[in-house]
Design a protein around this nucleic acid. Structure first.
Lengths: 170, 170, 170, 170
DNA sequence: TTTT
DNA sequence: TTTT
C-alpha cells in the first residue's frame, strides 16, 4: 500500500530481566515486557487512580539485541520505537490465537536507555559512558562530514559494516 | 509509574466501513480496521514482496467518533494517533484471551483524514473544505467548554486572539 | 489544508532553570532550553564523537506551565511533545528575523518528567509520587467507566473541570 | 548525553518543486518547504480560522534524495520523519543568524508519499507501482549491502527468508 | 478487510 | 546551557 506508517513509541519500565533467545542460524531475539501507566483523578471520588499497561516488545534488530543483552535489566526505563505486529499461532486446542507485539526490527527502530540503571558493572563504557544505547550508535563514519554550512550529522546511520539482518520473522 | 509514554501512530487505509456502537449511557464507540503495509525487494529472488498489517482501532473520544461516523468510509486513508491497550476477555470455553487495540481516547488522540475519499456527499464541507477532520477540528466552540462528562479535550489550539502572519519565512 | 500533522518529540535535558513569564492577562508562559545529543563512532579515526542540539521549548499550556514551574529544574530529563512554530520578529536594525520553537499548547502537547530530579521537596507528591507530570494528569473522571468489554482506559483527557486556556499569546 | 530523542513528524504539502543541490563530492541534498495547517473555530466570533506553518526540510539521506528528485513535486502530500537541527550562519552584516530545519539523515528518517501526485510519468513504477516511496523502499538489494559511504540503512524489513517461531503467548 |  |  502506498504511503503507510506503523509506529509505536513507548517510554516505560522493564518488568523483568529480558529473555534472549537465538534462532537456528544464531541470530538473537530479545523479549521485553514494558509497563506504561497513566494516572488521573477521579471526578467523583476525587481520588487518584492509576492504570498500567503491559507491552510485549520483541527485538529482532541484532545491534539492539546486544544492547538489551548487556544493559537492560528489570526496572530499566526505556524509550522504544518500533512497529505493531500481530502474530497468529495455535493454542493446544488447535485454535487460532493472536498476539500483538511491538517489534523492533530494521532501520526505523530505536531503543534508548533513559536511566543509569541496568548499566551496572561499567558495561556501558562500551557505549560511551552511561549510555545504554541508541540505534544510531553502532558504527558510522563521518570521514568528511558535509563541508558546507549544512549540518553534517553525517551519513546518519552511515555505513554499516556489519551484515544487516533485521528481517521479518514469520 | 513516573514518566511513561504510550503512543501509536498509524497512517493506513480503512478496510471496511466503520462500526459505531453505543454504550448504555449513549456514548459512541467506533471500531475501525486499518491496514498498513511495507514493501521490500527480496534479497535472493529480487522480487518485490509486501506485508500487510491489520490494526484494530477503537475510538472512545466522542468528537472523533462523530468524525468517523460522518466521514470515514472503507478505503479512506487516515492518520491515527492513539495508545496501545490490551484487553482481557473470555472465550466460549471460558479461557482467557487478550486483544490488543489502538485506542483513541482523551486529549492525546488524533484522527485525521488524508485523502478526499470518504468525504462523500460534500459532508466535509462542514470541516472547511476537503479536510476530513483532525482532532483539533471537531471542536466546536470554546466559549462554553463542555460541562458534561464528555471529554472536552477541546482547547486544541484554542482561541487565537492575536494577529498572525504565517508567511513563509526564510 | 486538509489532513496535516505537526509534531515534535524530544527526550532531553533541561539546560537551565525554566523562565516563567506572564501575559498581561495573567496567563503563564514557560521557556525551556532542552538539549538532545547523538553519539557515533568516526569511521576513520574510530573515535567517539558527539553532537548536541539545543531546542527552545515554549509552554503555553497552563497546566503544563504549572508543572514546569513547580518541578522542572536545570538538568531535568523531560519527554516533550509539541509542535514546530516559526515566529517572526524584528531585530534592532529593523530586519526580519525568524525563530523556530517547539510549542506546547493545546490538547496534543505533553510534558513528562523522566527522572526524579527537579522533584525536590516532595513537591511531586501532588502528582502521585515521583511523577513530574503529564498532560493527562490534570483531573478527569470516569465515574462509570465503560462497563462493557471495551477498554475503559478512562482518564484519557476526560472531563476537564477547569477552564481551558491553551491559547496562543505572544 | 545519555538517552535522548530528537524527532519531528510532519504530514503536509510541498509548497514548491524541491531543489536538489550537490556537495563537492557529489552527494545530493534536497530542500523542501512543507506546509502544515490547523483550523479552529474562534471562540468569540464563531468563525473558522486557519493557521499555516511552513517547515524547511533538508534531505541528506541519499536514498531519500533520489525519491525526492524523482517523485516529489509541488503540492505533494508527504509524511516526513526527521530531526530538528539549528544551523548557525552569518548574514551580510556578519551577524550571527540561526535557521532551524527538519533534517532527514540517517537511519531514523522517513519520507513517504501520501498521494498519487508527483508520481507522474509512470516514474513510480520503479517503486512498485504508485508508491511514492518510503525509506524502507529505496533499498533494493541486500545481498550486497552498501560498500560505499552511502548509508545502507537499508535492511528495513529486509529479506524474509528464515523460519521463526516467536511464540510468546503471554 | 485496505491500498498501490 | 544539559547530560553521559
Amino acid at each position: 500500500m502506498a504511503g503507510s506508517v506503523n509506529k509505536v513509541i513507548l517510554v516505560g519500565n522493564v518488568g523483568a530481566d529480558p529473555e534472549i533467545r537465538r534462532t537456528q542460524d544464531g541470530r538473537p531475539i530479545a523479549n521485553l515486557r514494558i509497563a506504561t501507566s497513566e494516572t488521573w483523578r477521579d471526578r467523583n471520588s476525587g481520588e487518584r487512580r492509576e492504570k498500567t499497561e503491559w507491552h510485549t516488545v520483541v527485538v529482532f534488530n541484532e545491534g539492539l539485541c546486544k544492547v538489551v543483552e548487556q544493559y537492560v535489566k528489570k526496572g530499566a526505563k526505556l524509550y522504544i520505537e518500533g512497529q505493531l505486529q500481530t502474530r497468529k499461532w495455535q493454542d493446544q486446542q488447535g485454535q487460532d490465537r493472536y498476539s500483538t507485539e511491538v517489534v523492533l526490527q530494521g532501520f526505523n527502530s530505536t531503543l534508548t536507555m533513559l536511566d543509569g540503571r541496568g548499566d551496572g558493572g561499567g558495561a556501558s563504557s562500551g557505549f560511551g559512558g552511561g549510555r545504554g544505547s541508541s540505534n544510531n550508535d553502532y558504527g558510522d563514519d563521518y570521514g568528511a562530514p558535509s563541508p558546507s554550512s549544512a549540518p553534517s550529522r553525517g551519513g546518519g546511520g552511515g555505513n554499516f559494516s556489519r551484515d544487516l539482518d533485521d528481517d521479518i520473522p514469520f
